[in-house]
Simulated assay, not measured.
Amino acid sequence: MNPQRPANTFRNAPPPTPRPKASNASTQRTQPLSRKPSSDQSSSRGLTRKWQQTRRFIRERPLLERIYWVVIKTFLWLFFGSMGYVVALKYVPVWVTPLIVSRWIDTFGTDESSHVYKKWRSYDSISKEAALAVVASEDQAFPTHWGFDFDEIQDAIKENQTRKRPRGASTISQQVAKNVFLWTGRSYLRKGLEVYFTALIELIWGKKRILEVYLNVAEMGSMTFGVEAASQRYYGHPAATLSRNEAARIAAVLPNPRLFLIKSPSNYIQRRTRQIARQMRYLGGQKYIRNL
């Protein structure tokens, strides 16, 4: 007789009692608390609301809306036009600058000759001693900075607190921006545009082109612009054959080329010429500007 099989307790077990559902109170406890908007979000919403109110205010006044769009279009034309002009001058010689025109106008009604001495030469056709001389005298940090020498600016601010005659701290890039694109004079608008054009030429032109333009447009004597014109007029030979001392003397008159003379230098210019030549040697010679 076969023994009786054991009962399958798993199959015959009563169904498990379902767990009670969570009450509303427990559900509310598990829900995350709503976060308050952060200060940044609140400020951004406030700015958006103010901008919408401003736009609505302008739209409700046709004349004001017309002026608004004229200003916007003028700004865009000037912005893209200036960028296009900067791009063009990266490849085209700079024959005329506002400074040249201003100096030419100043000769009207005076005994000074109105003839402008100017000859454009490419960077490769100019003695590297001339390029090194202007860097050594005007802007020794030129190969490394991005248009502005902030250390020199801070030093000039400190010195000008005690100096009777303020000392400038403009880099070669800033001087090119002023001479090529802007009018003569002093104003906050002009200074702001100088910063804008300096940043543009640093970004678009590069160091070699900036130095090339500077060597061709800088005033280096009475109605004399560019190192080629100065070399031909005062030394009788092209800028490609300038010696170190000749280049240093040209650079020595750059702070005030209408007062200081290359052909008959004063004791101050002779002393400054020796200082610049010494700085050119300390910088390591022409290799200092080889990789512009």
Rank of each mutant, 00 (worst) to 15 (best):
L261Y: 12
S243V: 00
I269M: 04
Q270F: 02
S243W: 03
Q270D: 13
A248M: 03
S264F: 13
P257S: 07
I269F: 04
N256Q: 08
N267A: 12
L261I: 10
N245P: 00
R271K: 14
I250F: 05
R233S: 08
K263Q: 14
P265S: 08
S243A: 04
A239I: 06
R258W: 08
V253M: 14
S266C: 06
Q270A: 05
H237W: 03
E246T: 00
Y235W: 11
I262A: 11
A247G: 02
P255I: 06
R244P: 00
F260T: 00
N256S: 14
S243P: 00
I269D: 09
S231R: 05
S264I: 07
A251E: 11
P257F: 13
R271P: 00
P265Q: 07
N256A: 15
T273R: 12
R272C: 08
S243Y: 04
R274W: 03
E246H: 00
R272Q: 11
S231G: 05
P255R: 11
P265R: 07
A247T: 01
A239K: 06
A252E: 06
L254K: 02
A248Y: 07
A248I: 02
N245Q: 10
P257T: 11
H237V: 06
I250D: 03
L242M: 12
N256I: 01
R258Y: 12
R271F: 12
P238R: 02
P238L: 03
I269K: 00
L254R: 08
K263Y: 11
N256M: 10
Y234F: 15
S266M: 02
Q232I: 12
Q270H: 09
T273C: 02
R233G: 04
Q232G: 01
A247C: 00
S264L: 10
Y234R: 05
P238E: 05
S266Y: 15
L261D: 15
A247L: 01
Q232S: 07
T241Y: 09
S231Y: 02
A247R: 04
R272Y: 07
R274P: 00
N267G: 13
P265T: 11
R233P: 08
I262L: 11
Y235R: 06
R244V: 04
R249H: 07
R233Q: 13
A251M: 07
N245T: 09
G236E: 08
L254N: 07
A247Y: 06
R244K: 15
S266N: 12
E246D: 02
A239H: 04
A247E: 05
V253T: 14
R274Q: 15
N267F: 10
H237E: 00
R233D: 02
Q270T: 09
K263F: 13
I250M: 15
F260M: 11
P255T: 08
A239T: 06
N267S: 14
I250L: 15
I269Q: 06
I269N: 05
K263E: 15
P257M: 10
R274S: 14
A230I: 09
L259M: 13
Q270V: 06
R244M: 12
R272F: 11
L242R: 05
P265I: 10
P265D: 10
S243L: 01
T241Q: 11
L254H: 14
T273P: 00
A252M: 12
L259D: 12
S264C: 03
Y235C: 08
R258I: 07
A240H: 04
P265V: 02
S243Q: 03
Q270P: 01
N267R: 12
L254I: 12
V253D: 10
N267P: 06
Y268Q: 01
I262F: 14
L242S: 13
L259E: 12
I269W: 05
R272A: 07
